[in-house]
Simulated assay, not measured.
Amino acid sequence: MRKISNAVVGVLNSLTLLLSLPVIGAALWLSLRAAASSECGRLLHLPLLAVGAALFVTSLLGLVGSFFRVSGFLWAYLAVLSLVIVAALAFAVMALVVTNRGIGRALSGKGYEEYRLGHYSHWLRRWVHEWKNWKVIASCLKEGKFCRRGSIFAGIMAGLFFRQNLAPMQSGCCKPPKYCKFKNMNNATWTIPDSATASSAPDCLAWSNDLHELCYSCSSCKAGVVAVLRRGWKKLIIANLVLLIVVIVIYSLSCCALSNNRRRRHVTGAHT
């Protein structure tokens, strides 16, 4: 393995170098679209461009260092991999901490659950409460017409709304919370009860029948987003562990490749 480590590292980095090109291309394509000038567009294309550029530079270091036996490039490559390993370990710990709580409250006779921010970790609640973060998320939901996709409003019009299995964000963003006691009418319209039974809770006051607003400003919507993030992070933990193992293997191979470079340099120097 020591003798072929240079070739293996070179091939792996050739593949990742090729992979980085469509990633960069997709980011540039997004930046040229009209949507890229919005908050949601910047949320998508800037991180994608950063990932593609970092992957390209890192792969180039590993490729040159292994195929052309340039030890300086391999040292730089190993330094980057070390940072990746540390970052992956840190992310795994943080992800386990911030996802250790989170539940939805099932409603009797309903096909969905309702979510509250208090059910989640303090870090997630604070992150989603920050205005600059929520501004981008709400912008994406509105631009993508999230609540107008699928069959959620078709179910309302058919009188079958409460039998639907709503996703967390649909439950939190596309309807008022149940405790508001709003009455459902046709075409996604809800009527506010008389003042004697109306709730003064912030989410009830924030609800709007305007399809562009709905409950996008509600805490229940933020809780739905956090519920989805929490589920996504749990999947990322598994992907992160796989990535960590792969990077450690590549790091070990790169160390062997660096050792080969040194041995080759000593043998060359001895012959001269």
Results as ranks from 00 to 15, higher is better:
Leu124Lys: 10
Leu49Ile: 02
Leu243Pro: 12
Ala188Gly: 01
Cys215Arg: 04
Arg163Asp: 08
Ser217Pro: 11
Phe67Val: 12
Lys175Ser: 07
Arg116Glu: 14
Gly118Ser: 08
Val70Glu: 08
Gln170Ala: 05
Val228Lys: 00
Val136Asp: 06
Ala239Pro: 09
Ala92Tyr: 15
Phe68Ile: 04
Val226Glu: 04
Leu15Thr: 09
Glu39Pro: 02
Glu39Tyr: 14
Lys178Cys: 08
Arg230Thr: 14
Gly65Pro: 15
Pro47Asn: 03
Ala206Leu: 02
Trp207Gln: 02
Ala87Val: 14
Phe153Tyr: 02
Leu74Gly: 07
Ser5Thr: 05
Leu15Arg: 02
Leu48Gln: 13
Val23His: 09
Val80Arg: 10
Val228Gln: 12
Ala36His: 12
Val246Ala: 13
Ala270Val: 02
Gly104Ala: 08
Leu83Arg: 00
Lys178Phe: 02
Ser14Val: 14
His212Cys: 00
Asn186Thr: 11
Tyr179Arg: 07
Ala92Cys: 14
Ser151Tyr: 01
Ala26Asn: 06
Ser195Gln: 09
Thr99Leu: 05
Gly104Arg: 08
Asn260Arg: 10
Ala227Gly: 03
Phe161Met: 04
Ile152Phe: 12
Lys135Ser: 12
Gly172Trp: 08
Asp210Ser: 04
Trp123Ser: 13
His45Trp: 15
Gly41Thr: 12
Ile103Leu: 10
Pro176His: 06
Glu130Leu: 14
Asn133Val: 13
Pro176Ala: 06
Gly102Ser: 03
Ala92Val: 14
Ser171Asp: 10
Trp131Cys: 03
Ile192Gly: 00
Gly118Trp: 01
Ala90Lys: 03
Ala88Arg: 03
Thr16Val: 04
Val84Cys: 11
Val23Pro: 04
Ala34Asn: 15
Ile192Lys: 06
